[in-house]
Design a protein around this nucleic acid. Structure first.
Lengths: 209, 209
DNA sequence: TAGATTGTTAATCGATTAACAATC
DNA sequence: TAGATTGTTAATCGATTAACAATC
């Protein structure tokens, strides 16, 4: 019932997965689910699910469980998915193509509004409806359009400099696919997708069996 | 000095990042580093670093710190990077292209040995030196080449079925880029790259500021 | 030797699980 | 009402941090 003051990273880190499973349940036409039922699907404990959700409010009903559609919408609200943010993409290589063509930014709370690349040969090309702009136009574009976030699909060496530039231009969040750890002001949000670390972890798991 | 019996997931999850920073230090010609020095670079505590490393052995020296090259090689050994494993890739879309062209599998402990796609039109095409094979040839190929792992770059709906097939064929590890959670036997290793979850997390971080 | 820094134990902190009264 | 299942508190477990003796 009571909203907690501070929510731990452990909890917020699990919210997207809850959301994903609730979307799935809704798609299958499931109307209600108990913490027990959901825990079995997700491979966690009912206790943890209830504990997690109650950080944000009492979304369930004793004797009934949780209404799938409602809980999904509650979590969407918590995640901020309904307040669509704007994002630009830096780099127009294969990773960018993969994201632009196969990834639903909108469903994850973002509206892609521009793509930039330093290669002049790409300028003017269209990526799934988006014209690629030269990186020199970044300043102007940002001043006019004030993007909330940037997706960095550029090499390691270029990432920090571009990120710094974007911070100066008011960008408040980074989705970082460059294989590097960025040093940025504390009020700037960063989500790293370190796929190299992920593959090494798989290597370790295979090794230790 | 003593190797621990069981290593927690929290610890092993940090190893790739240690490795990354040590590679970086080596590249810059740094010979030695103290836990304090490394902790400052990485934004952790010296205590945690020493604690983590001592799960696997006493790699440092009192009064000196750690030898960068040696520690890097120790961690590579722990991660199993030197025992190269074989991997195949399922799906030959943009994500696959991005990985094949820009990602160093070898450095992360894997040798890519084949790419498969269900689209016959792609069969025979070459991706960065790798011929794309039709998915119908998967069984035969696996029986002959016994890949250790598979990289799944296919849509959600197809992922589970292909994974099941591959498990039957002896594949022991999955690097999963499909936007789904796979249900697999416990002795099979899975590393999920849920980029959707990652972007939602960024959305949340932006929201809560 | 004196200074530095590890390896390791003990103390703290946080997260997960268990239990159960509240209540639909 | 009786059964089910939540919300929430208490107990357990694990992970991080602090401290310091060992030692290079």
């Amino acid at each position: 019932m009571e909203k907690k003051e501070h929510i731990s990273k452990a909890v917020t880190g699990r919210l997207p997965r809850y959301y994903r499973f609730l979307c799935d349940l809704e798609d299958r036409g499931v109307e209600r689910i108990s913490s027990k039922g959901l825990s079995e699907k997700m491979g966690t404990t009912a206790s943890q699910i209830r504990q997690d959700l109650n950080c944000f409010g009492g979304f369930g009903q004793q004797g009934y469980g949780y209404n799938v559609r409602q809980l999904k919408s509650n979590i969407a609200e918590i995640l901020g998915l309904s307040e669509i943010k704007t994002a630009i993409m830096i780099g127009a290589g294969n990773m960018s193509k993969a994201l632009v063509n196969h990834f639903e930014f909108r469903q994850k709370g973002f509206n892609l509004i521009g793509i930039f690349d330093k290669n002049p040969a790409l300028s003017g090309h269209i990526l799934n409806g988006f014209p690629i702009r030269h990186i020199d136009l970044l300043d102007e574009f940002c001043r006019e359009n004030r993007p909330d976030a940037a997706v960095l699909c550029i090499p390691k060496k270029e990432a920090q400099a571009v990120a710094d530039q974007l911070v100066r231009l008011g960008v408040k969040g980074f989705w970082n696919f460059s294989h590097s750890d960025l040093k940025l002001p504390k009020d700037v949000a960063v989500e790293n997708v370190h796929i190299g670390d992920s593959l090494m972890t798989l290597c370790y798991k295979l090794e230790s069996k």
